[in-house]
Amino acid sequence: MAQTLVIKIGTSSLTQTANGQLALSTIAALVETLCQLRQAGHHPVLVSSGAVGVGCGRLGISERPKQMAMKQAIAAVGQGRLMRIYDDLFSSLGQPMAQILLTRRELIDRSCYVNAYNTFQALFELGVIPIVNENDTVAIDELKFGDNDTLSALVASLVEADWLFILTDVDRLYSADPRLDPTARPIPLVSAGELSQLQVSAHSTGSAWGTGGMQTKLTAARIASESGVRTAITYGRNPQNILNILAGEPLGTQFEAQPRPENARKRWIAFGLVPGGKVFIDAGAVQALCQGGKSLLAAGVVRVDGDFQADDAVQICDLQGLEIGRGLSNYASSELSRIQGRRSEEIAVILGYQGPETVIHRDNLVLQK
């Protein structure tokens, strides 16, 4: 059965630890594995790190830059080199590939989001393997994904993937860093219910050349799981593990998927958008949303944090600060602050015009599972 597979490989797996130069044998093995997946009828998508690391190696820079403009300039140098290597290797196996550069803007704008989905589907139909990376050369802080683990999970949600494979420098998730703690316990499987409560020592910030760490991989697994995507973390130097996992072998750490939200618009609200603020609601409103399937009314709003406009995404939190969902606000934060706690029929008098009866309509609301 054909499946859509998103494979993310980190900088630590793509480069040699000592000098940041590309690990060509690993890249060749990865390309061969992707071609095997495509020949088996699957639709693989590669999310590849490495542009900044390769650029540093190309320019003889010994450590990753911290200044945004310098990082973007180096990424521009490295991206071309990295894609040239991928193209040469795929071409030698007769497999066409395509490059897709994304920023948050493409996922925030609904029409861009739909267009990106359609582009991926067209590439699958053409038998092309897409290679995705953040558009590091132009992305500003507000529009950056932060790390390619998060990017890969959002891409997996976008393309409605069956699997997300995160290839990294460890063979699986452990209860602590096995390089520092000999009592560290391997974790082979995490159920959907256990994922939100998973407690591990995951404070590593990644390699000198990368931006991720185990914590970003757990975040990616949560996003993917909530999108209905099964996730596996496995050793990046052995990409063939992907084939073995698909064959049923219990390799790496696997994260079960939750039931996939059928509504693509709600997946976009939950994972594509960046919340502009928080709306805190009382216990009655929590019950109405979570158990009654109702829309959020102004009467249930207790506090508003942040500066957002009408139609922006917001986090919905209970009085303890726990996020219970996300949605599109019908009011700007300045307006909502004036009508919070008031009945719907009072809105016109307070604001001077008749606004929507609901603060967040249930059709634009996604609750946490």
Score class of each variant (00 low, 15 high):
R81Q: 11
L93Y: 08
M68H: 10
P96C: 02
Q99A: 12
A75L: 05
L93Q: 11
A98C: 10
L107A: 06
L107K: 09
L59R: 15
I85Y: 07
G80M: 04
L102K: 13
G80D: 05
L107P: 01
G60M: 13
L102W: 10
G78N: 05
Q67D: 14
I74K: 03
D88S: 14
K71Q: 13
M83K: 07
G80T: 08
P96I: 01
A75T: 10
T103S: 15
A73L: 06
L101Q: 09
I74S: 05
R104G: 11
I85K: 12
A73P: 00
G60T: 14
S91F: 07
L82M: 15
L89G: 03
G78H: 04
A76F: 08
L89W: 01
S62L: 11
L102E: 07
M83E: 09
Q67V: 14
A76P: 02
G78E: 03
I74M: 06
G94F: 03
I74D: 03
R104V: 02
R81W: 08
V77S: 01
R84G: 12
V77T: 08
T103I: 04
L82I: 12
Q67W: 02
A76Q: 03
A73I: 07
S91D: 14
A73C: 06
L93C: 05
A73T: 15
P65W: 01
I108Q: 05
Q79E: 12
Q79Y: 10
L102S: 12
I61C: 02
A69G: 01
A98Y: 08
I74T: 09
Q67P: 00
A76K: 06
L101D: 09
K66W: 01
V77E: 00
L101A: 08
F90K: 04
G80W: 01
S91M: 08
L59G: 13
R81D: 06
P96H: 03
D109A: 10
Q72F: 04
E106Q: 15
Q67Y: 05
S62P: 01
I61A: 04
R104P: 00
Q72E: 03
A69L: 07
F90V: 07
L102G: 13
A69H: 07
L82Y: 11
D109L: 03
R104W: 01
I100E: 02
L93A: 09
Q72R: 08
A73M: 08
D87F: 02
A73Q: 11
E63T: 13
R81P: 00
D88T: 15
R64C: 08
K71T: 15
I61V: 14
D109E: 13
V77R: 00
E63F: 03
L59M: 15
R104K: 10
T103M: 00
L82E: 11
K66N: 11
T103A: 02
D88H: 10
S62A: 15
P96R: 03
V77P: 07
Y86N: 04
G60W: 06
G60L: 10
A76N: 10
I74A: 05
R84E: 15
M83P: 08
E63Y: 05
D87N: 11
F90Y: 09
M70E: 11
M68T: 13
I108E: 10
I74F: 01
S91P: 06
A98G: 13
R84Y: 07
Q72N: 05
A69S: 14
P65K: 07
K71A: 14
K66I: 02
A75Q: 04
Y86G: 02
P65A: 08
G60Q: 11
I85T: 15
G78A: 13
L89I: 02
I100R: 05
M68C: 00
L93N: 02
M97D: 04
D88Y: 06
